[in-house]
């Protein structure tokens, strides 16, 4: 679905944000793009809908070179929710905010109405349809930003730091939304340094540092590698940090969820008890 072929991007200021990135992301994949602030995550995401075009190398979306397509054309395939997307609300009601971009994309009124209804229902915002976007809570604003994007029905949804400033209830809801989008067959790419959030979602993790990809693999493998993470200003999630302290006792160290940790600990302790007992 997405292919980066030795992509380098240098900002006009001379800052090299991406250095020779090559990676492929398939249809329906859930990917967490992780790394320190300034690692290049946002620059990567801006290449997905052509907001930025590579200085050298190529980005392909659904087989097409992004250099030959406009942002408007790419936006139908790739929806991006930026970190401060909610700062861009400007219409008097939630409903109009969602309808606006659909009309811009040239959908007929019937489709606009159907899509708005669907997106608001999906993001659980129906009750607020006539309310001003500015009166929504932080979590609701995030969901509205996502509803606006989903209304276009893009195959790829990318979110830049969606958990920053969100409390645990809002994060829980966001996780649910992400899982549903994946179930619908969408490709979901989340840029974040929230290790606890990623540990609960268990996506494929692409780890970036200083404009390069330094690791790419399962969350269980990457989030349990303390050295690798610290090189990117990240820390292990607490479950992994705990299990790694008990490695010498034969506990499974590649565990990132509470449930798996509990299962592994109880099994191991029972086994020890059993040996002592016999």
């Amino acid at each position: 679905m997405i292919k980066f072929d030795s992509v380098t991007y240098v900002y006009p200021t001379g800052v090299r944000a991406l250095s020779g990135i090559s990676v492929e992301i398939g249809k329906g994949e859930l990917v967490a793009l992780m790394g320190e602030n300034g690692a290049g995550k946002t620059t990567f995401i801006k290449h997905l809908n052509g907001l930025l075009k590579p200085t050298s190398g190529r980005v392909y979306v659904d087989g097409k070179d992004t250099r030959s397509l406009s942002v408007a054309q790419l936006s139908r395939k790739v929806g991006i929710v930026f970190q401060n997307a909610e700062d861009m609300f400007f219409l008097p009601t939630v409903e109009e905010e969602v309808a606006f971009s659909l009309r811009n994309l040239g959908f007929d009124e019937g489709t606009v109405r159907r899509r708005v209804d669907w997106a608001l229902r999906f993001m659980e915002l129906e009750a607020y349809r006539n309310r001003s976007p500015f009166l929504l809570s932080g979590g609701e604003k995030k969901r509205l930003a996502l509803a606006i994007i989903l209304a276009w029905n893009p195959q790829v949804v990318a979110m830049d730091e969606p958990t920053v400033g969100q409390d645990s209830v809002q994060k829980e809801k966001l996780k649910e939304m992400v899982r549903q989008m994946v179930l619908q067959g969408r490709t979901v790419i989340i840029s974040t340094h929230d290790v606890e959030f990623v540990a609960e979602l268990r996506p494929r993790v692409i780890l970036m540092s200083k404009g390069r990809i330094v690791a790419d693999g399962r969350a269980e493998d990457i989030l349990t590698d303390a050295g690798l993470l610290e090189g990117c200003s990240l820390l292990m999630p607490q479950v992994a940090a705990t299990m790694s302290r008990l490695r010498d006792l034969g506990f499974d160290a590649k565990v990132i969820s509470v449930e798996d940790a509990v299962k592994s600990i109880v099994e191991r302790l029972r086994a020890v008890e059993h040996t002592r007992g016999s």
């Binding site: 999630p237 479950v239 705990t242 509470v258 509990v262 600990i265």
Partner: peptide
């Protein structure tokens, strides 16, 4: 998370 882990373990042992 360590609180949830400890509670989980204590349910069995």
């Amino acid at each position: 998370k360590v609180v949830s882990m400890a509670k989980g373990v204590n349910k069995s042992l």
